[in-house]
Design a protein around this nucleic acid. Structure first.
Lengths: 312, 312
DNA sequence: TTAGTTTATGAAACCGGTCCCAGGTCAAGC
DNA sequence: GCTTGACCTGGGACCGGTTTCATAAACTAA
């Protein structure tokens, strides 16, 4: 493989001069520039990316930490990140964790080893303290509100406000007993915390019988539907943590000849449109773009994305 | 930032010895190994990834070329690739093209610059000849059948057979006039070519009035539905290039109080389940995993993934 | 005419690792 | 006693670039 020294030798000029030509710097005589460029073309030469990254001390690569890639929630954020990265000439590396803290730690160590300039956590299992401890090795962005006493960069939606807004809307429409579906009943999960808090504000304390935990997929939603259908007295509407899950609830009622309850979903996916229920669109692409800008220091340390309640 | 030389100096041993400790090689005295490890821990040292990659001449990174990330077709393939890559200790970089050949070329040049060990084309705009020309700079995998005279590595599904199978099934069920929805009427698009060929085998020549071109999203499918509903005499079933598009067709008929036609979709997404139409599952995760294995030379040069017809 | 600036160039240090090779010790086998 | 091979160690070339610095010519302004 031909390298910069070959070009230098064959052109008769120094490595420095060749480097200047490569990087389009000034202070190179026109004739020399032309000759060097000719030889590079002739030898089919392309500068080695890794060597440049080593010398520059940065890779123009941002790692994106997520549990898995095939979930619409993460896919949409990733899409936003990727398009912003493309526009900025950055590369995006996907870092799946399957919610395993050990694996998250591995990626933090890769940040330490300069494999990435920054990390974006679209979800996390590690504590915010842990993330902050790695902050000195590169920018770290999380996709949730880290609270006021935290120093991490963050891009997040106005989840709590949007939940309260949607729940108040339901309440105003006469739905007094709201069931809730959550993914994980985990303190670290921002979504869980925020849902509980919003519910509290509108309906008061969330009774555990009105709560179904462990829903990530459509099938989980279907099981949630079975659960709520079995309740007596029943809830009269259901707040879910995702449209596909809401569609599962809906479908259970439909297939068992029950009148489907009003559902509030999230993410404005096709499923909520097909099943005709309301949803909260968190504008995840915008969230991803904002997160990327934070990662590369193009923005300040916090970015709030407005979400949108879509009534159906 | 502390480097291997600092560790060598502080431990009193040579860089070679430290390197051996880092890489868990033998031929290091136990006491020295222990001391070096202690010092590395004490100084919070992690070897620089980029320097290692440069020295090793490979990055353990595979680039995945795709038009965009937020489409279920690509998202599923990517998911398969990412999980296989994770298992093999490789990193995946996403390379969006928006179907732009110029941008594809840029990624091929990044392969040339050793930024990636291999490239996977989940879709392409460049010709196979172009890809083959870059083959000498690293492994290149495409996700379609390249034909017998091509040398490219490829992972693909038995598209044509599965299409023929699905169409025959429809024919046997009495549907004699099949409408078709395609994304792009482009010679380079394998899916277009194969759909036409399968149609030909079962129904004979595809009349242009029975074809709707330009469908990628649900909305496009909705427009396709409007088109087919306006036809007189009408088609009696519709073959679509994706479940979400099929759902659009279905929804158009539903919203206009027409009896929805039988639809054949693709990818076995939630939408085909919700709308209750048949679909061809191409097992895209498996396709992605196979593509990754080809990219890292764990498999031979071709891999055929069996698809599955799901009758509803 | 002289001092100061801009332009042009190459040598060499540097980024932070890997690894080949030469040199040395030590115990087993003949 | 001598050869052989396994074990251990460090020097230094190498991967392929960027960048600082010293040097010098050409040009500008006073």
């Amino acid at each position: 493989m031909t390298n910069i020294h070959d070009i230098a030798r064959l052109s008769g000029y120094s490595v420095s001069t060749v480097s200047r030509v490569i990087n389009h710097q000034k202070y190179v005589a026109d004739e020399k520039r032309a000759k060097v460029e000719a030889i590079m073309r002739q030898l089919d030469y392309v500068p080695n990316r890794v060597a440049r990254d080593l010398s520059n001390g940065r890779t123009k690569t941002v790692g994106v930490v997520m549990p898995y890639a095939n979930h619409p929630y993460f896919a949409r954020i990733i899409d936003g990140i990727v398009s912003a990265a493309f526009a900025a000439g950055y590369k995006i590396t996907l870092l799946p964790t399957n919610y395993d803290m050990t694996i998250e730690r591995r990626y933090l160590d890769q940040l330490r080893s300069k494999a990435y300039d920054a990390l974006i956590f679209t979800s996390r299992s590690s504590s915010l303290e842990t993330l902050e401890r790695y902050r000195k090795y590169g920018q770290i962005v999380c996709c949730e509100d880290p609270g006021t006493d935290r120093t991490l960069a963050a891009a997040y939606t106005d989840r709590e406000a949007s939940y309260v807004n949607a729940l108040r809307w339901a309440q105003a429409h006469g739905y007094q007993k709201m069931g809730v579906v959550l993914s994980r009943n985990n303190v670290i999960s921002a979504s869980t915390r925020v849902t509980r808090s919003a519910y509290q504000q509108v309906y008061g304390k969330l009774a555990s019988r009105d709560l179904f935990v462990g829903a990530v997929t459509y099938e989980d939603g279907y099981r949630a539907g079975a659960y709520f259908a079995s309740l007596n007295p029943s809830v009269d509407a259901i707040f879910t943590n995702g449209d596909d899950i809401g569609a599962g609830v809906y479908q259970y009622y439909l297939e068992h000849d029950l009148t489907p309850l009003p559902i509030i979903g999230q993410e404005n996916l096709l499923s909520s449109r097909l099943c005709q229920f309301s949803t909260i669109d968190h504008h995840l692409e915008a969230l991803g773009r904002a997160a990327f800008k934070l990662a590369t220091g193009q923005t300040t340390t916090h970015e709030l994305i407005k979400s949108e309640f879509i009534r159906r």
